[in-house]
C-alpha cells in the first residue's frame, strides 16, 4: 500500500509544470506512454501539445514531461518481487497480428519503430502445415543460457523468474545474443536517439535509456508489475491473446479473463516453444486451434514492405504466386 501511495505522490509532482499560460492546473497526458502514443508527438527535443483544463492545447517542451514512475535502482532490480514466479500464456488461436503489443512495448520502452522487443512471427513449419501468427517476447527461461554465458554478470535471473539486462554493466560482447536460441536480444548498434528518459533515471527494470554498444530485450515490464499492473503487451492486446500471472498463485489473466494457469494449460494443451532446447521458458503457448480470425486478417493494414518480410513463408509465397497468376 505504501508503495502505491508513493507512486501517486510522485506522479503528481510530474504534472507541476510551470506554464506561462495563466492556468493554474493543466491537463496533461499522464504518462510517457500516453505521450508517445500519439504519432505526431514522436521525436526528440520537439515541443509537444498538452490539453489544459479549459480545453486549450498548449505547447510544452517534451523534455519537461518525465514519466513519474518509480525508479528501481540497479541493485534493487536484482531482487525480484518476493514470492512470485511470473509466467505468460499466449493463445495463438486468438492472435491476428494486430501489432498492438509491439506498439505498446515500443511506446513504453521508447524504442524506435524498427526495434521490436516483442515480435510477431508468421510461422509455418512446413508447406503442408498451417501458418499462424506467433507473438514472441523474451522467454525468461528458467535455465537461461544468455545469463550463463555472460562474462560480467550484466544479465541476470531474478527470484521472480524475470531475466534482466543491466546496461551499465554490459560490455557488449554479444555472447548472450548468440547464446539465446530465440533471437530475443537486440544490440544498440548506434547511439539510440529515441530516449527521453535521463540517464540518471536508468533502471534495468525498464532498460531505459538504452546505450550504444549494449544489449536490450523484453523485460516483462517489472515496473508495471510492481504497480500491480499487467505488462504493456498483455494489457494492450485487443484480442486478449496474452495472459500473464504468477504461477505460484496458479493464476493468469489477460485483463478481462482470469483463469487458473494449470487448468488453462491442461484444457488447451499448452506447450512451450522449443522445449527440446532445454532452456525451460516461462512463456507458454496455446496451440493455434479454433482460430477467431482467418490468418489473412493479420496482413490487413501492413504495407508492402512489411509483408515482404514474410516472403520466405510458404503461405505468403503461394499467395503471391496466385496473385501474379491472376
Amino acid at each position: 500500500m505504501e508503495e502505491k501511495d508513493e507512486n501517486k505522490g510522485s506522479r503528481r509532482n510530474f504534472l507541476k509544470l510551470g506554464l506561462g499560460v495563466g492556468v493554474t492546473s493543466i491537463l496533461a497526458a499522464t504518462s510517457a506512454s500516453l505521450l508517445t502514443s500519439n504519432k505526431a508527438f514522436a521525436g526528440n527535443s520537439e515541443k509537444i501539445k498538452v490539453l489544459t483544463q479549459d480545453g486549450k492545447l498548449v505547447e510544452v517542451n517534451k523534455a519537461d514531461l518525465v514519466p513519474a514512475d518509480q525508479i528501481v535502482s540497479r541493485e534493487d532490480s536484482h531482487k525480484g518481487l518476493p514470492n512470485r514466479k511470473f509466467a505468460m500464456v499466449i493463445d495463438l488461436g486468438k492472435c491476428k497480428n494486430a501489432r498492438k503489443c509491439i506498439e505498446a512495448c515500443q511506446e513504453g520502452h521508447q524504442l524506435p519503430k524498427e526495434q521490436e522487443w516483442m515480435r510477431v512471427f508468421l510461422m509455418q513449419d512446413t508447406e503442408k502445415t498451417a501458418p499462424y501468427w506467433f507473438p514472441r517476447p523474451c522467454f525468461h527461461c528458467d535455465n537461461p543460457l544468455c545469463v550463463s554465458v555472460c562474462p560480467v554478470g550484466a544479465t541476470y535471473k531474478r527470484s521472480d523468474g524475470i531475466v534482466l539486462v543491466d546496461n551499465e554493466r554490459c560490455i557488449g560482447c554479444k555472447f548472450c545474443m548468440t547464446a539465446c536460441p530465440f533471437s530475443a536480444r537486440q544490440f544498440h548498434w548506434k547511439e539510440p536517439t529515441t530516449y527521453t528518459v535521463p540517464e540518471e533515471k536508468y533502471s534495468p527494470e525498464t532498460n531505459m535509456p538504452g546505450r550504444e554498444g549494449t544489449v536490450g530485450k523484453c523485460v516483462f515490464c517489472p515496473d508495471k508489475l510492481r504497480k500491480g499492473e499487467l505488462p504493456r503487451c498483455a494489457s494492450a492486446c485487443p484480442m486478449g491473446v496474452i495472459y500473464f500471472g504468477d504461477i505460484i498463485e496458479d493464476t493468469v489473466t489477460n485483463g478481462d479473463e482470469t483463469i487458473r494457469f494449470s487448468e488453462l494449460i491442461k484444457n488447451r494443451a499448452g506447450y512451450r516453444q522449443f522445449e527440446e532446447l532445454g532452456t525451460e521458458p516461462s512463456v507458454y503457448y496455446l496451440p493455434p486451434v479454433d482460430r477467431q480470425f482467418p490468418l489473412e486478417r493479420g496482413l490487413d493494414g501492413l504495407d508492402e514492405q512489411q509483408i515482404k518480410k514474410y516472403d520466405n513463408v510458404p503461405y505468403i509465397k503461394n499467395l503471391k504466386e496466385t496473385k501474379d497468376g491472376i
Binding site: P151, V152, R169, C170, I171, G172, E212
Partner: peptide, 17 residues
Amino acid sequence: GRLDRLYYLILFPRIQS
C-alpha cells in the same frame, strides 16, 4: 560494444562464461 568497460571482465568475472 563498450570498450570503456573492458576491465569489467576482471572486476566482475563469472567463471561460468
